[in-house]
Design a protein around this nucleic acid. Sequence first.
DNA 1: ATTTTTCTGTTCGCATGGCGAACAAATCCG
DNA 2: CGGATTTGTTCGCCATGCGAACAGAAAAAT
Lengths: 252, 252
Amino acid sequence: MANKSDFIGSLAKGLKVIEAFNAEHARLSIADVAEATGFDRATSRRCLLTLHELGYAAYDGKFFTLTPRVLRLGMGALASLPLAQVVQPWLDQLSDRIGQSTSVSILDGTEIVYLARAAQRRVMSIGLMPGSRLPAHCTSMGRVLLAALPEEEARALIDTSDLTPRTVQSVTEPERIMERLAAARTDGYAVIDQEVEVGLRSIAVPLYNAHGHVVAALNTGVAAVQSEASDLAALYLEPLKRVQDGLRRVLR
Amino acid sequence: MANKSDFIGSLAKGLKVIEAFNAEHARLSIADVAEATGFDRATSRRCLLTLHELGYAAYDGKFFTLTPRVLRLGMGALASLPLAQVVQPWLDQLSDRIGQSTSVSILDGTEIVYLARAAQRRVMSIGLMPGSRLPAHCTSMGRVLLAALPEEEARALIDTSDLTPRTVQSVTEPERIMERLAAARTDGYAVIDQEVEVGLRSIAVPLYNAHGHVVAALNTGVAAVQSEASDLAALYLEPLKRVQDGLRRVLR
DNA sequence: ATTTTTCTGTTCGCATGGCGAACAAATCCG
DNA sequence: CGGATTTGTTCGCCATGCGAACAGAAAAAT
């Protein structure tokens, strides 16, 4: 930004207030928002009242919750990503053929964002839908996306990730994660075994565009009771690579 | 809002700029945004540059597109709706049993917003995901949700709806739509036959909470080549009502 | 290739919007 | 019931955000 005077502080504050709401904090008071954002209580209050006035938040006299109207804010981004529309039929077909859930995601900072999904039976307790996020370092799709970056860039992202273990199997040492990325780079795919959630294993491959650049990741996830980690490549790598090859001609 | 001075105009402007992006207008210039929002060009420019600075928009030197980060703005709303989490397993089961896609949505103004979905084979060309919207007046779920409102309230929403026909079968006269709502009220369900999209028929029922209030709608959609509209009730009403009954005890 | 039109970047003066402190009242909690 | 916490409100202040105006760049038309 050329000039500091091109920046609108009030808008920035309001967006930070919206981001203060999440699954764990769905219903917040003025004091809650002031604490979560670090803004003055009166500032937080004006932001919340503005959101309420515009229909983005409901207010019961003390607590605020976001309303479905805020979904309009995000739809512009999903809509502007042609990738999701293009890959959906491929995911549906792949999911039908292999009998497992499949997804496509992209990297956004230290997280992956789901763009498209074809779901079979639920194997994860958290519902994953376009827009959902998971940490990149401990997901198969995240690992192939990080592996596609220059090594220093990947390391910087790992260093700023929240490496808090999510299961007892979570890999949390940066050096070991970098090793897994190197392996993913060499193998052309990544497998995770109950690192992001107990009971879930998944395998992912990168998706390339016609120029050979990695633009997304494709995975399938299976219940741990259903397949050993060591079997995932034998079972699913070939169909995933077939979709990878098919999409390479289509994506730009 | 008690005081006009509790309203933050700059925040309101910025949110309107974000909403200017949609599927048809995914990539906008400063002039485009000024035109779409009615704001001064310099104001539009500052909003866009602020969104870019915060990571919500990408900028190529002339055009802006929203980035996946704006999805964080909407996720707080979905997360704060326990309804989506509660109904998902019921949708998955129902979808498996009847072999068709099923969805749950709520009313937001003149539109329905999808909260949850269990998809089988794609019958619609537009991908519907949580957060997607369709006009209420010409969808089966929209009709049962409008039918649950006091009649004057429903009429006011019909009067402010965009009644542009989407297919040759679209019902667009307010009186005829009100008749369809009355029928839905009497029957306890609604069927639409290719009004929202050629090739799609669907049937929906309202979802009640333990207090008997309508809180959402549940539907299944089928390809027109697969079932006649007159057969939908015979084929699917019973399983839909079974889920309706089951959820009545669970929803609050 | 040139001219015209449209768009963007930038500056700047101005008005007021948004800020936060302070106080009173309401609510919550022990 | 008293103390602690939170919310509503007012208000003075000043920095923020606005929009006009101008120059330059880019795009479109000739």
